[in-house]
């Protein structure tokens, strides 16, 4: 009798554990499939990630140097001797390494996130843009290339971007990074206001 009771209670207990575990799996799945998280939660996660990057890889999280490496790798196939002579490519060596791999990583991570939540969709002209400047893809793409060129140029001029200076640098209490981040937003706010409220309303 006692043996039967024991196994009965054990079975109940295991079932309870299974239900608890199942609930936790459901909670995690619900989280992963949510369209967006609170910006505070996503941001806090990024803060933890930067700490882990310092711990495991001894470096900040930055993105713009990955593009320099991609440039150098592309240029190497066209004119390898020029790349070897280029001073900047001696400082930021064009190779497939941590700083390069973070870029395809971000693409994959955002793809997974948007697929899980059903938010993935192809767009060419974002709605905020089309509401002011119309639906012409050519105009959007030309301005995006122009903007990208200034963005990449400015990021390397300043020695980092929103993640390298704005987040990782500020986390280290770097004065240069905080000043840079302030300038990103000062320049960005002034330009966006001019673009949308002056040119856009003309």
């Amino acid at each position: 009798m006692t043996g039967n009771n024991f196994s009965f209670y054990r079975r109940v207990r295991i079932l309870n554990y299974a239900v608890i575990l199942r609930n936790e799996v459901i909670i995690i799945l619900e989280l992963l499939t949510q369209a967006t998280w609170s910006p505070y939660v996503a941001g806090a996660g990024i803060g933890v990630l930067v700490c882990l990057a310092f711990l495991l890889s001894n470096r900040p999280i930055g993105c713009s140097s990955g593009f320099v490496k991609a440039d150098g790798l592309i240029e190497k196939t066209i004119r390898p001797s020029h790349v070897e002579k280029e001073e900047y490519y001696r400082e930021i060596v064009p190779e497939v390494d941590w700083a390069f791999m973070i870029i395809p990583g971000i693409v994959i991570g955002a793809f997974i996130s948007s697929m899980l939540s059903g938010q993935f969709h192809f767009i060419l002209v974002p709605t905020t843009w089309s509401a002011t400047f119309g639906n012409t893809p050519v105009l959007r793409v030309i301005i995006a290339i122009l903007g990208g060129a200034f963005l990449g140029f400015g990021a390397r001029w300043a020695g980092g971007c929103t993640s390298g200076h704005g987040i990782s640098g500020s986390i280290q209490l770097s004065l240069a990074s905080m000043i840079t981040a302030a300038c990103f937003f000062a320049g960005g706010i002034a330009t966006a206001m001019f673009l949308f409220y002056v040119i856009g309303s003309a």
Partner: peptide, 14 residues
Amino acid sequence: IGGLIFGFGFALLG
């Protein structure tokens, strides 16, 4: 200077 150039591009590209 780099930060301001970046900001200009940031707003154009989005």
